[in-house]
């Protein structure tokens, strides 16, 4: 399958992330880069500007900016030309999907179809064929996997923001090694420890952020939350919100509830869970038990 990767305002993190895909060599046998910002490609960028044929999937990376010119042509012109040519469009990363961090650095910046959660109409004719792969950066398994599913023409169920369900139906909370501290409402957390949950004080957005960070694991070995860093909510339209390391609270009650959980249900369960001071969760995991 022939791929064309077009970067707008990007950090190249998505392109580098893909190189970490463990099956990259085998995976790549099924794909041809017409253009990729790092990897050997069939065409040069000036040739892409001149015009090529045969694009099957257009990969859009980076925040779009009104009037952006990469070399000679307006980026929008390239997007329209190859967007029409491609069977599918994949917005890779949060910048290309929702605008992301760089959208905050100037006016006229957005993702391909969204500015935050506002659905834009500038490329509406592409909406039906667009797949959104937010993440800052995207996990390599998500990008490689989605492209393979598209290539095989297998069904690819999407959510309302067009994120593939196979990767985004989960929350970052799923699979976190700190889950029990959340379930039993142990709200004490200190950095530099294996124990505790960052939901209560330290801004963790894992319970309401879609993605597979703790299911697939990063680089196959770990995740931010396992390493004691809060989930920053980087796959969601409102990334990055202000005060990423603090949990917004209303009189001590977290302002945002776990995904789909009514506040009354959460508070009711929290009240019950909190009532039991469960000994195990108050002790260091690595404590010598004298056995």
């Amino acid at each position: 399958m022939r791929l064309l990767w077009l970067s707008a305002l990007a950090c190249n993190g998505n392109a580098h992330s893909l190189l970490n895909y463990p099956g990259f060599q085998e995976w790549q046998e099924d794909f041809h880069w017409l253009y990729h910002p790092l990897l050997p490609s069939r065409y040069t960028f000036p040739e892409i500007e001149k015009g090529i044929e045969g694009v099957e999937v257009l990969i859009v990376d980076g925040t779009l900016e009104e009037g952006l010119i990469k070399n000679r042509l307006p980026y929008r012109e390239l997007l329209l030309r190859y967007g029409d040519q491609a069977e599918r469009i994949v917005t890779v990363g949060t910048c290309a999907t929702f605008g992301g961090i760089f959208a905050q650095g100037g006016g006229g910046r957005s993702g391909l179809h969204f500015e935050g959660d506002e659905h834009l109409k500038g490329y509406e004719r592409f909406w039906e064929k667009t797949v959104s792969l937010p993440g800052c950066p995207v996990q390599p398994e998500v990008l490689a996997g989605t492209l393979s599913i598209i290539r095989r023409r297998d069904p690819l169920p999407l959510d309302t923001l067009h994120r593939p369900k196979y990767f985004y139906a989960y929350t970052i909370h799923d699979g976190c090694t700190r889950n029990e501290y959340f379930e039993y409402k142990i709200d004490e957390h200190h950095f530099g420890t294996l124990e505790g949950c960052m939901f209560y004080d330290h801004g963790c957005q894992g319970t309401f952020t879609h993605g597979s960070c703790n299911k697939i694991l990063w680089n196959g070995v770990n995740s931010k939350t396992r390493a004691g860093t809060p989930c920053l909510g980087c796959t969601e339209p409102d990334f990055p919100r202000e005060g990423l390391w603090r949990t917004p609270k209303h009189m001590g009650i977290p302002a945002r509830m776990p995904l789909g959980v009514p506040r009354r249900a959460y508070l009711g369960l929290a009240g019950i869970a909190k009532a039991f001071r469960i000994e195990r969760f108050t002790r260091p995991l690595m404590e010598d038990e004298g056995g």
Binding site: N20, F191, G192, N219, N222, G228, T229
Partner: peptide, 30 residues
């Protein structure tokens, strides 16, 4: 080597690229 070094960072820092594990006072995890 790129992949292995990414894994080595991730083992200590959570992920690579783009982790935030170094915080004032030390590192976020253990």
């Amino acid at each position: 080597p790129s992949r292995l070094l990414g894994e080595m960072i991730a083992l200590l820092a959570g992920q690579y690229p783009h982790n935030s594990y170094a915080i004032p006072g030390g590192i976020s995890g253990e």
